[in-house]
Design a protein around this nucleic acid. Structure first.
Length: 431
RNA sequence: GCGGAUGUAGCUCAAUGGCAGAGCACCUGACUGUGGCUCAGGUGGUUGUGGGUUCGAGACCCAUCAUCCGCCCCA
Protein backbone atom coordinates (compact mmCIF):
# COMPACT_ATOMS: atom_id res chain seq x y z
CA UNK A 1 0.00 0.00 0.00
CA UNK A 2 1.24 3.41 -0.85
CA UNK A 3 2.20 5.72 1.92
CA UNK A 4 -0.97 7.41 3.05
CA UNK A 5 0.91 10.61 3.56
CA UNK A 6 1.49 10.94 -0.18
CA UNK A 7 -0.58 13.68 -1.67
CA UNK A 8 -2.32 12.40 -4.78
CA UNK A 9 -1.60 13.97 -8.11
CA UNK A 10 -4.26 16.00 -9.86
CA UNK A 11 -6.74 13.73 -11.65
CA UNK A 12 -5.72 13.21 -15.23
CA UNK A 13 -2.32 14.86 -14.79
CA UNK A 14 0.67 12.99 -16.13
CA UNK A 15 3.74 11.77 -14.31
CA UNK A 16 6.67 10.95 -16.53
CA UNK A 17 9.07 8.50 -14.96
CA UNK A 18 12.25 8.18 -17.04
CA UNK A 19 10.75 5.35 -19.06
CA UNK A 20 7.67 7.37 -20.00
CA UNK A 21 9.82 10.41 -20.57
CA UNK A 22 11.78 8.39 -23.12
CA UNK A 23 8.55 7.64 -24.97
CA UNK A 24 7.54 11.28 -24.91
CA UNK A 25 10.92 12.28 -26.24
CA UNK A 26 10.76 9.57 -28.88
CA UNK A 27 7.48 11.03 -30.13
CA UNK A 28 8.87 14.55 -29.92
CA UNK A 29 11.92 13.54 -31.93
CA UNK A 30 9.81 11.98 -34.71
CA UNK A 31 7.53 15.00 -34.74
CA UNK A 32 10.45 17.36 -34.93
CA UNK A 33 12.10 15.45 -37.73
CA UNK A 34 8.95 15.22 -39.86
CA UNK A 35 8.24 18.92 -39.34
CA UNK A 36 11.74 20.04 -40.16
CA UNK A 37 11.95 17.75 -43.19
CA UNK A 38 9.35 19.98 -44.83
CA UNK A 39 10.93 23.23 -43.66
CA UNK A 40 8.56 24.10 -40.81
CA UNK A 41 9.74 26.41 -38.01
CA UNK A 42 9.24 25.54 -34.35
CA UNK A 43 7.34 28.02 -32.21
CA UNK A 44 5.22 28.15 -29.07
CA UNK A 45 2.61 30.26 -27.29
CA UNK A 46 1.76 30.91 -23.64
CA UNK A 47 0.49 27.95 -21.60
CA UNK A 48 -1.95 30.25 -19.83
CA UNK A 49 -4.30 32.60 -21.65
CA UNK A 50 -7.28 34.79 -20.84
CA UNK A 51 -10.49 32.84 -21.12
CA UNK A 52 -11.85 35.34 -23.66
CA UNK A 53 -9.38 34.05 -26.21
CA UNK A 54 -11.35 30.82 -26.36
CA UNK A 55 -14.73 32.26 -25.51
CA UNK A 56 -14.54 34.41 -28.61
CA UNK A 57 -14.56 31.36 -30.78
CA UNK A 58 -16.95 28.93 -29.22
CA UNK A 59 -18.54 31.09 -26.55
CA UNK A 60 -20.01 27.88 -25.29
CA UNK A 61 -20.22 25.93 -22.10
CA UNK A 62 -17.45 23.90 -23.65
CA UNK A 63 -15.03 26.57 -22.64
CA UNK A 64 -16.28 26.66 -19.08
CA UNK A 65 -16.83 22.96 -18.65
CA UNK A 66 -13.81 21.55 -20.40
CA UNK A 67 -11.14 24.05 -19.53
CA UNK A 68 -9.06 24.49 -16.45
CA UNK A 69 -9.77 28.03 -15.33
CA UNK A 70 -8.99 30.01 -12.22
CA UNK A 71 -8.79 33.56 -10.99
CA UNK A 72 -5.36 35.02 -10.62
CA UNK A 73 -4.46 37.44 -7.83
CA UNK A 74 -5.89 40.38 -9.75
CA UNK A 75 -9.16 38.56 -10.32
CA UNK A 76 -8.48 37.89 -13.99
CA UNK A 77 -9.88 34.68 -15.43
CA UNK A 78 -6.97 32.55 -16.53
CA UNK A 79 -7.26 29.39 -18.61
CA UNK A 80 -4.74 26.64 -19.08
CA UNK A 81 -4.68 26.45 -22.85
CA UNK A 82 -7.01 23.75 -24.23
CA UNK A 83 -5.81 24.29 -27.81
CA UNK A 84 -3.31 26.32 -29.75
CA UNK A 85 -5.15 27.77 -32.71
CA UNK A 86 -6.52 30.95 -31.05
CA UNK A 87 -3.03 31.81 -29.76
CA UNK A 88 -1.68 31.19 -33.26
CA UNK A 89 -4.29 33.52 -34.70
CA UNK A 90 -3.38 36.28 -32.27
CA UNK A 91 0.35 35.96 -32.82
CA UNK A 92 -0.07 35.99 -36.58
CA UNK A 93 -2.43 38.93 -36.48
CA UNK A 94 -0.02 40.93 -34.32
CA UNK A 95 2.77 40.62 -36.86
CA UNK A 96 0.84 39.95 -40.01
CA UNK A 97 2.70 42.67 -41.89
CA UNK A 98 6.19 41.48 -41.04
CA UNK A 99 5.94 37.70 -41.24
CA UNK A 100 7.07 35.90 -44.36
CA UNK A 101 4.29 33.99 -46.05
CA UNK A 102 3.53 31.27 -46.78
CA UNK A 103 4.32 30.59 -43.19
CA UNK A 104 5.04 27.09 -41.93
CA UNK A 105 5.02 26.62 -38.16
CA UNK A 106 4.97 23.64 -35.83
CA UNK A 107 4.79 23.23 -32.08
CA UNK A 108 4.80 20.48 -29.46
CA UNK A 109 3.70 21.36 -25.97
CA UNK A 110 1.30 20.74 -23.08
CA UNK A 111 -2.44 21.31 -23.14
CA UNK A 112 -5.21 20.81 -20.61
CA UNK A 113 -8.82 19.82 -20.96
CA UNK A 114 -11.18 19.10 -18.12
CA UNK A 115 -12.53 15.76 -19.27
CA UNK A 116 -12.88 12.40 -17.67
CA UNK A 117 -9.69 10.41 -18.15
CA UNK A 118 -9.95 7.11 -19.99
CA UNK A 119 -8.05 5.13 -22.57
CA UNK A 120 -6.29 7.51 -24.93
CA UNK A 121 -7.42 10.60 -23.08
CA UNK A 122 -6.06 12.45 -20.08
CA UNK A 123 -6.62 15.94 -18.73
CA UNK A 124 -3.05 16.93 -19.39
CA UNK A 125 -1.47 15.99 -22.69
CA UNK A 126 1.11 17.03 -25.21
CA UNK A 127 0.06 17.99 -28.67
CA UNK A 128 1.80 18.46 -31.96
CA UNK A 129 0.34 21.32 -33.96
CA UNK A 130 1.49 22.09 -37.47
CA UNK A 131 0.11 24.64 -39.88
CA UNK A 132 0.76 26.33 -43.19
CA UNK A 133 -0.74 29.79 -43.56
CA UNK A 134 -1.09 32.08 -46.53
CA UNK A 135 -1.62 29.55 -49.28
CA UNK A 136 -4.97 28.27 -50.35
CA UNK A 137 -4.56 25.26 -52.58
CA UNK A 138 -5.25 21.53 -52.52
CA UNK A 139 -1.52 21.08 -53.06
CA UNK A 140 -0.83 22.81 -49.75
CA UNK A 141 -3.37 20.49 -48.11
CA UNK A 142 -1.49 17.59 -49.64
CA UNK A 143 1.76 18.80 -48.10
CA UNK A 144 0.32 18.76 -44.59
CA UNK A 145 -1.04 15.27 -45.14
CA UNK A 146 2.37 14.26 -46.42
CA UNK A 147 3.96 15.62 -43.24
CA UNK A 148 1.57 13.44 -41.25
CA UNK A 149 2.36 10.46 -43.44
CA UNK A 150 6.07 11.08 -43.01
CA UNK A 151 5.62 11.08 -39.26
CA UNK A 152 3.73 7.76 -39.38
CA UNK A 153 6.35 6.26 -41.63
CA UNK A 154 9.30 7.36 -39.54
CA UNK A 155 7.59 6.15 -36.35
CA UNK A 156 7.35 2.73 -37.98
CA UNK A 157 3.61 2.67 -38.68
CA UNK A 158 3.22 1.30 -42.18
CA UNK A 159 0.22 1.95 -44.46
CA UNK A 160 -1.18 -1.46 -43.59
CA UNK A 161 -1.90 -0.29 -40.07
CA UNK A 162 -2.12 3.49 -40.19
CA UNK A 163 -4.42 5.21 -42.64
CA UNK A 164 -5.19 8.87 -43.24
CA UNK A 165 -8.81 9.30 -44.29
CA UNK A 166 -9.61 12.37 -46.34
CA UNK A 167 -12.78 14.21 -47.24
CA UNK A 168 -13.74 17.67 -48.40
CA UNK A 169 -16.33 19.94 -46.82
CA UNK A 170 -17.11 21.77 -50.04
CA UNK A 171 -17.75 18.49 -51.83
CA UNK A 172 -20.07 17.36 -49.06
CA UNK A 173 -21.89 20.69 -49.00
CA UNK A 174 -22.48 20.38 -52.73
CA UNK A 175 -23.82 16.88 -52.26
CA UNK A 176 -26.04 17.97 -49.38
CA UNK A 177 -27.35 20.79 -51.58
CA UNK A 178 -28.11 18.33 -54.36
CA UNK A 179 -30.17 16.33 -51.88
CA UNK A 180 -32.06 19.44 -50.90
CA UNK A 181 -30.68 19.53 -47.40
CA UNK A 182 -30.91 23.17 -46.34
CA UNK A 183 -27.66 24.92 -45.32
CA UNK A 184 -28.90 25.49 -41.76
CA UNK A 185 -29.10 21.74 -41.25
CA UNK A 186 -25.60 21.04 -42.54
CA UNK A 187 -24.00 21.28 -39.14
CA UNK A 188 -26.41 18.83 -37.52
CA UNK A 189 -26.10 16.46 -40.43
CA UNK A 190 -22.30 16.72 -40.33
CA UNK A 191 -22.26 15.91 -36.65
CA UNK A 192 -24.48 12.94 -37.28
CA UNK A 193 -22.22 11.71 -40.07
CA UNK A 194 -19.30 12.05 -37.69
CA UNK A 195 -21.01 9.71 -35.28
CA UNK A 196 -22.11 7.13 -37.80
CA UNK A 197 -19.48 4.47 -37.16
CA UNK A 198 -20.16 4.62 -33.43
CA UNK A 199 -23.91 4.26 -33.61
CA UNK A 200 -26.38 1.50 -34.16
CA UNK A 201 -27.52 1.82 -37.83
CA UNK A 202 -31.22 1.78 -37.01
CA UNK A 203 -30.77 4.42 -34.36
CA UNK A 204 -28.70 6.48 -36.74
CA UNK A 205 -31.50 6.41 -39.31
CA UNK A 206 -33.92 7.44 -36.61
CA UNK A 207 -31.78 10.41 -35.63
CA UNK A 208 -31.44 11.44 -39.27
CA UNK A 209 -35.18 11.48 -39.71
CA UNK A 210 -35.43 13.32 -36.41
CA UNK A 211 -33.35 16.10 -37.93
CA UNK A 212 -36.06 16.57 -40.49
CA UNK A 213 -34.65 14.60 -43.39
CA UNK A 214 -37.16 12.68 -45.46
CA UNK A 215 -36.75 9.07 -46.53
CA UNK A 216 -35.47 10.08 -49.93
CA UNK A 217 -32.83 12.39 -48.44
CA UNK A 218 -31.81 9.74 -45.96
CA UNK A 219 -31.38 7.23 -48.76
CA UNK A 220 -29.41 9.75 -50.78
CA UNK A 221 -27.23 10.57 -47.80
CA UNK A 222 -26.43 6.91 -47.24
CA UNK A 223 -25.60 6.53 -50.93
CA UNK A 224 -23.14 9.40 -50.62
CA UNK A 225 -21.56 8.02 -47.48
CA UNK A 226 -21.11 4.66 -49.16
CA UNK A 227 -19.62 6.09 -52.32
CA UNK A 228 -15.85 5.87 -52.02
CA UNK A 229 -15.36 7.15 -55.58
CA UNK A 230 -17.12 10.39 -54.80
CA UNK A 231 -13.81 12.25 -54.70
CA UNK A 232 -13.54 11.96 -58.47
CA UNK A 233 -16.30 14.56 -58.72
CA UNK A 234 -14.18 17.04 -56.77
CA UNK A 235 -11.54 19.02 -58.57
CA UNK A 236 -9.89 19.81 -55.23
CA UNK A 237 -9.63 16.18 -54.21
CA UNK A 238 -8.42 15.12 -57.63
CA UNK A 239 -5.62 17.64 -57.38
CA UNK A 240 -4.98 16.64 -53.78
CA UNK A 241 -4.48 13.02 -54.70
CA UNK A 242 -2.13 13.78 -57.58
CA UNK A 243 -0.07 15.97 -55.28
CA UNK A 244 0.02 13.18 -52.69
CA UNK A 245 1.22 10.85 -55.41
CA UNK A 246 4.07 13.21 -56.27
CA UNK A 247 4.91 13.72 -52.60
CA UNK A 248 5.19 9.98 -52.08
CA UNK A 249 2.42 9.88 -49.50
CA UNK A 250 -0.41 8.46 -51.56
CA UNK A 251 -0.19 4.97 -50.06
CA UNK A 252 -1.23 6.28 -46.64
CA UNK A 253 -4.30 8.13 -47.82
CA UNK A 254 -7.85 7.00 -48.55
CA UNK A 255 -10.93 8.97 -49.43
CA UNK A 256 -13.75 8.50 -46.93
CA UNK A 257 -16.98 10.51 -47.18
CA UNK A 258 -17.74 9.73 -43.53
CA UNK A 259 -14.91 11.92 -42.24
CA UNK A 260 -16.39 15.28 -41.28
CA UNK A 261 -14.65 16.56 -38.11
CA UNK A 262 -16.80 18.37 -35.63
CA UNK A 263 -15.13 21.71 -35.96
CA UNK A 264 -17.08 24.55 -37.41
CA UNK A 265 -14.11 26.28 -38.91
CA UNK A 266 -13.04 23.70 -41.46
CA UNK A 267 -14.00 24.78 -44.93
CA UNK A 268 -12.30 22.46 -47.41
CA UNK A 269 -10.13 19.40 -47.05
CA UNK A 270 -10.49 17.51 -43.76
CA UNK A 271 -8.53 14.46 -42.67
CA UNK A 272 -8.03 12.08 -39.78
CA UNK A 273 -5.50 9.31 -39.22
CA UNK A 274 -6.40 6.04 -37.53
CA UNK A 275 -4.70 2.88 -36.44
CA UNK A 276 -6.62 0.18 -38.29
CA UNK A 277 -5.45 -2.80 -36.25
CA UNK A 278 -4.94 -1.77 -32.63
CA UNK A 279 -7.22 -1.34 -29.64
CA UNK A 280 -7.49 2.44 -29.82
CA UNK A 281 -10.40 3.77 -31.81
CA UNK A 282 -9.57 7.40 -31.38
CA UNK A 283 -7.92 9.39 -34.14
CA UNK A 284 -4.13 9.61 -34.12
CA UNK A 285 -4.29 13.09 -35.61
CA UNK A 286 -6.80 15.22 -37.42
CA UNK A 287 -6.98 18.51 -39.25
CA UNK A 288 -7.98 20.32 -42.36
CA UNK A 289 -8.27 23.59 -44.19
CA UNK A 290 -9.75 26.58 -42.44
CA UNK A 291 -10.54 30.01 -43.83
CA UNK A 292 -10.65 33.27 -41.97
CA UNK A 293 -8.45 32.10 -39.17
CA UNK A 294 -7.89 35.67 -38.11
CA UNK A 295 -11.46 36.90 -38.35
CA UNK A 296 -12.08 36.69 -34.62
CA UNK A 297 -8.95 38.50 -33.58
CA UNK A 298 -9.14 41.29 -36.10
CA UNK A 299 -6.47 40.44 -38.63
CA UNK A 300 -6.70 40.33 -42.41
CA UNK A 301 -8.36 37.18 -43.79
CA UNK A 302 -5.86 34.38 -44.11
CA UNK A 303 -6.38 30.82 -45.20
CA UNK A 304 -4.52 27.97 -43.61
CA UNK A 305 -4.27 24.25 -43.33
CA UNK A 306 -3.03 22.26 -40.37
CA UNK A 307 -3.53 19.37 -38.01
CA UNK A 308 -2.98 18.35 -34.41
CA UNK A 309 -1.85 15.13 -32.78
CA UNK A 310 -2.02 14.29 -29.08
CA UNK A 311 0.74 12.25 -27.47
CA UNK A 312 -1.54 9.85 -25.62
CA UNK A 313 -3.14 7.92 -28.46
CA UNK A 314 0.01 7.68 -30.56
CA UNK A 315 1.94 6.62 -27.45
CA UNK A 316 -0.41 3.70 -26.83
CA UNK A 317 -0.33 2.68 -30.48
CA UNK A 318 3.45 2.77 -30.72
CA UNK A 319 3.75 0.67 -27.59
CA UNK A 320 1.18 -1.84 -28.76
CA UNK A 321 2.95 -2.11 -32.09
CA UNK A 322 6.29 -2.65 -30.36
CA UNK A 323 7.79 0.35 -32.10
CA UNK A 324 9.23 2.06 -29.06
CA UNK A 325 12.98 1.53 -28.77
CA UNK A 326 14.14 -0.35 -25.70
CA UNK A 327 14.56 1.94 -22.75
CA UNK A 328 18.12 2.77 -21.79
CA UNK A 329 18.14 3.52 -18.08
CA UNK A 330 21.44 5.36 -18.02
CA UNK A 331 22.66 7.76 -20.67
CA UNK A 332 26.16 6.92 -19.49
CA UNK A 333 27.55 3.72 -20.94
CA UNK A 334 30.42 3.36 -18.53
CA UNK A 335 30.51 3.26 -14.74
CA UNK A 336 33.64 4.24 -12.88
CA UNK A 337 33.69 2.39 -9.57
CA UNK A 338 35.02 3.86 -6.35
CA UNK A 339 37.27 1.30 -4.74
CA UNK A 340 37.75 2.88 -1.34
CA UNK A 341 38.06 6.10 0.55
CA UNK A 342 41.67 6.64 -0.60
CA UNK A 343 41.03 6.14 -4.30
CA UNK A 344 37.71 7.95 -4.33
CA UNK A 345 39.02 11.18 -5.83
CA UNK A 346 41.12 9.32 -8.38
CA UNK A 347 37.94 7.70 -9.68
CA UNK A 348 36.30 11.09 -9.87
CA UNK A 349 39.27 12.39 -11.86
CA UNK A 350 39.12 9.39 -14.16
CA UNK A 351 35.43 10.03 -14.87
CA UNK A 352 36.17 13.68 -15.57
CA UNK A 353 38.85 12.60 -18.03
CA UNK A 354 36.33 10.46 -19.92
CA UNK A 355 33.87 13.33 -20.06
CA UNK A 356 36.49 15.67 -21.46
CA UNK A 357 37.02 13.09 -24.17
CA UNK A 358 33.35 13.41 -25.06
CA UNK A 359 31.98 10.30 -23.36
CA UNK A 360 29.10 10.07 -20.95
CA UNK A 361 30.54 8.57 -17.80
CA UNK A 362 28.95 7.93 -14.43
CA UNK A 363 30.96 7.57 -11.29
CA UNK A 364 29.67 5.71 -8.27
CA UNK A 365 28.95 8.42 -5.71
CA UNK A 366 30.82 6.83 -2.81
CA UNK A 367 33.02 3.89 -1.89
CA UNK A 368 31.04 0.67 -1.73
CA UNK A 369 31.55 -3.04 -2.12
CA UNK A 370 32.39 -3.87 -5.71
CA UNK A 371 29.56 -6.39 -6.09
CA UNK A 372 27.14 -3.64 -5.22
CA UNK A 373 28.66 -1.28 -7.74
CA UNK A 374 28.73 -3.91 -10.47
CA UNK A 375 25.15 -4.80 -9.76
CA UNK A 376 24.21 -1.16 -10.04
CA UNK A 377 25.93 -0.91 -13.43
CA UNK A 378 24.14 -4.03 -14.56
CA UNK A 379 20.72 -2.74 -13.58
CA UNK A 380 21.43 0.54 -15.28
CA UNK A 381 22.15 -1.54 -18.39
CA UNK A 382 25.56 0.03 -18.71
CA UNK A 383 28.06 -1.44 -21.14
CA UNK A 384 31.32 -1.16 -19.27
CA UNK A 385 32.67 -0.91 -15.75
CA UNK A 386 36.03 0.58 -14.83
CA UNK A 387 37.89 -0.44 -11.70
CA UNK A 388 40.64 1.66 -10.24
CA UNK A 389 42.00 -0.33 -7.29
CA UNK A 390 45.27 -0.11 -5.39
CA UNK A 391 47.11 -2.37 -7.85
CA UNK A 392 46.01 -0.31 -10.85
CA UNK A 393 46.60 3.03 -9.18
CA UNK A 394 50.13 2.06 -8.37
CA UNK A 395 50.96 1.06 -11.95
CA UNK A 396 48.92 3.65 -13.81
CA UNK A 397 46.45 1.08 -15.07
CA UNK A 398 42.68 0.71 -15.18
CA UNK A 399 40.58 -2.43 -15.36
CA UNK A 400 37.98 -2.28 -18.10
CA UNK A 401 35.21 -4.84 -17.97
CA UNK A 402 32.79 -5.43 -20.80
CA UNK A 403 29.50 -6.24 -19.13
CA UNK A 404 28.12 -7.73 -22.30
CA UNK A 405 30.79 -10.39 -22.69
CA UNK A 406 32.14 -10.50 -19.12
CA UNK A 407 35.62 -10.04 -20.54
CA UNK A 408 37.96 -7.66 -18.79
CA UNK A 409 41.44 -6.36 -19.28
CA UNK A 410 43.95 -4.20 -17.49
CA UNK A 411 44.99 -1.34 -19.71
CA UNK A 412 47.26 1.64 -19.39
CA UNK A 413 45.50 4.93 -18.76
CA UNK A 414 46.54 6.12 -22.24
CA UNK A 415 44.92 3.08 -23.85
CA UNK A 416 41.70 3.39 -21.85
CA UNK A 417 39.75 5.42 -24.38
CA UNK A 418 40.34 3.12 -27.31
CA UNK A 419 39.63 0.08 -25.17
CA UNK A 420 36.34 1.57 -24.03
CA UNK A 421 35.38 2.68 -27.49
CA UNK A 422 35.91 -0.84 -28.75
CA UNK A 423 33.52 -2.20 -26.13
CA UNK A 424 30.90 0.41 -26.81
CA UNK A 425 31.09 -0.06 -30.57
CA UNK A 426 30.81 -3.81 -30.09
CA UNK A 427 27.76 -3.39 -27.92
CA UNK A 428 26.13 -1.03 -30.35
CA UNK A 429 26.38 -3.68 -33.03
CA UNK A 430 24.79 -6.18 -30.68
CA UNK A 431 21.70 -4.04 -30.23
C1' G B 1 -22.66 14.59 -15.83
C1' C B 2 -24.15 8.92 -16.31
C1' G B 3 -23.05 3.51 -16.06
C1' G B 4 -19.87 -0.86 -15.04
C1' A B 5 -15.52 -3.09 -12.82
C1' U B 6 -11.47 -3.13 -9.45
C1' G B 7 -8.78 -1.58 -4.74
C1' U B 8 -4.68 -7.26 -0.23
C1' A B 9 3.55 -6.68 0.44
C1' G B 10 7.49 -2.32 -3.98
C1' C B 11 5.01 -5.22 -8.52
C1' U B 12 1.53 -9.22 -10.36
C1' C B 13 -2.04 -11.75 -7.84
C1' A B 14 -4.12 -15.86 -4.07
C1' A B 15 -6.88 -16.68 0.50
C1' U B 16 -15.41 -21.50 1.67
C1' G B 17 -17.19 -15.63 7.07
C1' G B 18 -12.29 -18.84 10.99
C1' C B 19 -3.85 -18.20 12.00
C1' A B 20 -3.06 -12.75 5.56
C1' G B 21 -0.13 -16.07 1.62
C1' A B 22 2.70 -17.09 -3.19
C1' G B 23 5.76 -15.63 -7.34
C1' C B 24 8.81 -11.71 -8.77
C1' A B 25 11.56 -7.61 -6.61
C1' C B 26 14.54 -6.11 -2.30
C1' C B 27 18.34 -7.19 1.79
C1' U B 28 22.10 -10.76 3.79
C1' G B 29 25.20 -14.89 3.05
C1' A B 30 27.57 -18.99 0.10
C1' C B 31 31.62 -15.47 -2.99
C1' U B 32 36.63 -9.97 1.88
C1' G B 33 38.85 -7.07 -6.01
C1' U B 34 33.65 -8.20 -10.07
C1' G B 35 27.12 -7.84 -12.33
C1' G B 36 23.64 -11.54 -14.58
C1' C B 37 22.83 -17.61 -13.14
C1' U B 38 22.15 -20.96 -8.80
C1' C B 39 21.34 -22.14 -3.61
C1' A B 40 20.20 -20.84 1.66
C1' G B 41 18.18 -17.37 4.91
C1' G B 42 15.70 -12.65 5.89
C1' U B 43 12.91 -7.76 5.74
C1' G B 44 8.38 -6.25 4.19
C1' G B 45 0.80 -5.58 5.67
C1' U B 46 -3.94 -0.54 9.97
C1' U B 47 -6.27 -5.84 3.33
C1' G B 48 -7.81 2.33 0.01
C1' U B 49 -10.61 5.13 3.99
C1' G B 50 -14.88 5.56 7.56
C1' G B 51 -18.95 3.19 9.61
C1' G B 52 -22.19 -1.25 10.12
C1' U B 53 -23.66 -6.75 10.50
C1' U B 54 -21.25 -10.96 13.17
C1' C B 55 -18.64 -14.77 18.60
C1' G B 56 -15.36 -13.70 14.45
C1' A B 57 -14.86 -9.54 8.23
C1' G B 58 -9.70 -9.16 3.32
C1' A B 59 -14.52 -11.42 2.12
C1' C B 60 -21.14 -9.47 3.65
C1' C B 61 -23.91 -4.27 3.94
C1' C B 62 -23.70 1.31 3.63
C1' A B 63 -20.87 5.54 2.62
C1' U B 64 -16.55 7.71 0.72
C1' C B 65 -12.00 8.15 -2.08
C1' A B 66 -8.91 6.42 -6.00
C1' U B 67 -7.96 3.85 -10.50
C1' C B 68 -9.51 1.42 -15.01
C1' C B 69 -13.27 0.58 -18.93
C1' G B 70 -17.39 2.61 -21.46
C1' C B 71 -21.36 6.60 -22.42
C1' C B 72 -21.63 11.99 -23.09
C1' C B 73 -18.17 15.34 -25.09
C1' C B 74 -13.95 16.03 -27.94
C1' A B 75 -12.17 23.31 -29.73
Amino acid sequence: MANKALIQKIKGAREFYPEQMALRNFIYEKVRRASRAFGYQEWDAPFIEPIELYAAKSGEELVKKQSFTFNDRDGEFVTLRPELTPSLARMIAAKQGELTFPLRWWSFGPFWRYESPQKGRSREFFQWNIDMLGTDSPEADAELIAVGAEFLRSAGLKPDRAVIYVNNRRLMDAEFDALGIPPEKRLDVSNLVDRRTKMDPAKWDENALGLGLDQKQLGGLKDILGNFDLWKKSDELTRLFSALEALGAREYVKFDPNIMRGLLYYTGTVFEAFDTTGSVRRAIFGGGRYDNLLADVGGQPLSGVGFAMGDVVIGIILQEAGLVPEFEPSPAQALVTVFDEKLWMQSYALAAELRRAGMNAMVYPEPAKLPKQFKFADRMKMKAVLVLGPDEAEKGLVVVKNLGTSEQEQVKREALLSSLQKILAFNVKQD
